[in-house]
Design a protein around this nucleic acid. Structure first.
Length: 574
RNA sequence: GACUCAGUAGCUCAGCUGGUAGAGCACGUCCCUUUUAAGGAUGGGGUCCAGGGUUCGAAUCCCUGCUGGGUCACCA
């Protein structure tokens, strides 16, 4: 990179880097740096009367500086927070040579640099716990300028807020916005709390394939990729359900997985193309047991994070204290529309939808219409955690039919703050029924439903060997983290949310193309046909370019001579 | 995908009905030995997202595109 591309401040920092080296100071030393205290230790445990922390060795980033001639204060930030550090010229430079203070500390170090310090803890005149430096070491030089965020009395000034930069350069966000780290610490705690609970009960944490030949276990559009050696398509998993159930067939009584799933669908505040789901399957249980289990789990998570169960989510206060209300889908619809859909046929339901102004398609079956009514009229009312149970059979091809009503399934979703958080079944373990349900999905697929499930013959085969009665549950970890930490965007609970590539397509002028031999009359059309840069043009085979450009000429009826293949080939030479 | 708002210095932002770019922090130089959004003096720093158009003249108006945010649609 030439200095021409750098800002003034970046050039100054690079010069400082060279100057450090010329003074015999390596800005990126190899040796480890011994640390015996962190900033949190000092803040919480330093007591001047006890005279502790009198020989500390600490390390971190310089986050601010207040230089007053021969004395200076900096703020040093490590993983645990910040502490004030005092530098005094004559304490650092014991002899006549004051270079280490005047030049190295004052001039060559910058905000963002990592340093190590040795010294002792003390309290300043204004009463702030600080470290008195006897010796410091440059540990890593920062060449880019961090955003400067200042704070006074809990009020933040000049906060680093540009969401694009915060997500693209999360490392900067984490360095300068102290509250961001907290969300991710809580996310880890949520996962650990769940994992501990499962392990205590003897369930086994497992890993199942992410690359799957058949994307099963959910209805969603998958990402597709290609395996070269096998010369076959593979899909990134949309769910891991069918693999976990195979393990129940294999004889494990409880298995769970924290899994990244991938869905090739729209992105918004609550959807990212890759997201984390926890799925758990327990043998010899049903969905009633799973509801008890789920509410116990969520109460534990809330307690572990906050010490209580009442959380503010948006404008609502949501209480995760068990037990949660349990409501069948039919009763929920009755409660919010006054209509009892029990026993209605397709025609009657269609009329109900019309009366309720719920938009439905001609192709919708009973199940889908009921689901639409619920989605439109009920879902957003479910603020407190509520188990919605007994979904129509058409919507749930992997779920066992209801013990009292074959049109329904033993399924529940847990709704919180008007959104789905968990999804669970008494799992379908009748292989003949399962095959029929897959075949129904195939019919939907033939009708053009691109999200209908594929038939997984091996999964049916596994069921034929016998799967014990089992209940399974899935919970969206990103969404749970949003609820538990009060974030309203999924991007704020993912370190690296999906973004479009940031490199802008550089547009070159026709003269750049003429320079590589493109005829003058063609130059602007080459750009118009989509080859906006010479580099882009050269990414293609000359035969392809030739075809495409003559195609463009024909389509737009250009009154110029068609291109010859050998002519195009000459453009490609570097 | 639709609508809508935004993009100006490293960061946060001003910039009027079009007249050729500003502040605070940060940075350079100088002063300052317990400060804390340290302070004082002084100076430098810009492809005003990109491309086109209107105009004598565009950061500003118009068009197209790029990127991001919000709302909606899609999404068990």
């Amino acid at each position: 990179m030439s200095h021409l591309d750098l800002s003034e401040q970046e050039i100054i920092r690079r010069k400082s880097l060279e100057e450090l080296r010329s003074l015999g100071i390596e800005p990126y030393p190899q040796a480890m740096y011994e640390i015996n205290a962190n900033t949190k230790d000092i803040r919480e445990n330093f007591d001047p009367e006890k005279e502790n922390f009198q020989e500390v060795s600490m390390a971190g980033r310089i986050m601010s500086r207040r230089i007053m001639g021969k004395a200076s204060f900096i703020e040093l930030m490590d993983e645990k927070g910040r502490v004030q550090v005092y530098f005094n010229r004559d304490e650092i430079c014991l002899g006549e040579d004051k270079t280490l203070y005047n030049t190295v500390f004052k001039r060559l170090l910058d905000i963002g640099d990592f340093i190590g310090i040795k010294g002792y803890a003390f309290v300043t005149q204004v009463g702030e716990k600080s470290i008195f430096v006897k010796e410091f070491t440059v540990l890593s030089k920062s060449l880019r300028v961090l955003p400067i965020v200042k704070e006074k009395d809990g009020k933040t000034y000049d906060a680093f807020t540009d969401s694009e930069q915060r997500y693209r350069q999360r490392y900067v966000d984490l360095v300068v916005n102290s509250n961001v780290k907290d969300v991710f610490l809580k996310r880890a705690k949520i996962i650990n709390t769940m994992r501990n609970m499962f392990n205590e009960r003897g369930y086994l944490e497992v890993e199942t394939p992410i690359l799957q030949p058949i994307p099963g276990g959910a209805a969603a559009r998958p990402f597709i990729t290609h395996h070269n050696a096998l010369n076959m398509p593979l899909y990134l998993r949309i769910a891991n359900e069918l693999y976990l159930k195979r393990l129940i067939v294999g004889g494990f009584d409880g298995v769970y997985e924290f899994a990244k799933d991938f869905r090739n669908e729209g992105m918004d505040r609550t959807h990212n193309p890759e997201f984390t789901v926890m799925e758990i399957y327990v043998a010899y249980k049903d969905y009633n047991w799973m509801m008890d289990f789920t509410e116990e789990m969520l109460e534990k998570v809330a307690m572990a994070l906050h010490g209580h169960t009442k959380l503010k989510i948006g404008d609502n206060e949501v209480d995760f204290k068990a037990p949660y209300r349990r409501l069948t889908m039919t009763d929920a619809i009755k409660e919010h529309t006054g209509i009892d859909i029990t026993g209605m046929n397709e025609e009657q339901l269609r009329k109900v939808c019309k009366d309720l102004n719920v938009e439905v398609d001609e192709t919708y079956g009973k199940g889908k219409m009921i689901d639409e009514i619920f989605g439109e009229k009920c879902e957003h009312h479910m603020i407190q955690p509520t188990f919605i149970t007994d979904y129509p059979v058409e919507m749930s091809p992997l779920c066992k039919k209801h013990r009292d009503n074959p049109e329904l399934t033993e399924r529940f979703e847990l709704m919180v703050n008007g959104k789905e958080l968990c999804n669970a079944y008494t799992e379908l373990n009748d292989p003949i029924d399962q095959l029929e349900r897959f075949q129904d999905q195939l019919k939907l697929s033939e009708k053009g439903d691109d999200e209908a499930m594929f038939i997984d013959e091996d999964f049916v085969r596994a069921l034929e060997y016998g799967m014990p009665p089992t209940s399974g549950m899935g919970i969206g970890i990103d969404r749970l983290t949003m609820f538990m930490t009060g974030q309203d965007s999924i991007q704020d609970v993912l370190f690296f949310p999906q973004m479009r590539p940031e490199k802008k397509a550089k547009v070159e002028g026709p003269e750049d193309f003429i320079a590589i031999g493109v005829p003058e009359v063609w130059a602007e059309y080459v750009i118009a046909a989509g080859f906006t840069t010479v580099a882009k043009l050269r990414e293609n085979k000359h035969t392809q370019v030739h075809q495409q450009l003559n195609g463009y000429r024909k389509k737009n009826k250009l009154d110029i001579a068609a291109l010859q293949l050998d002519e195009v080939e000459k453009w490609m030479a570097e």
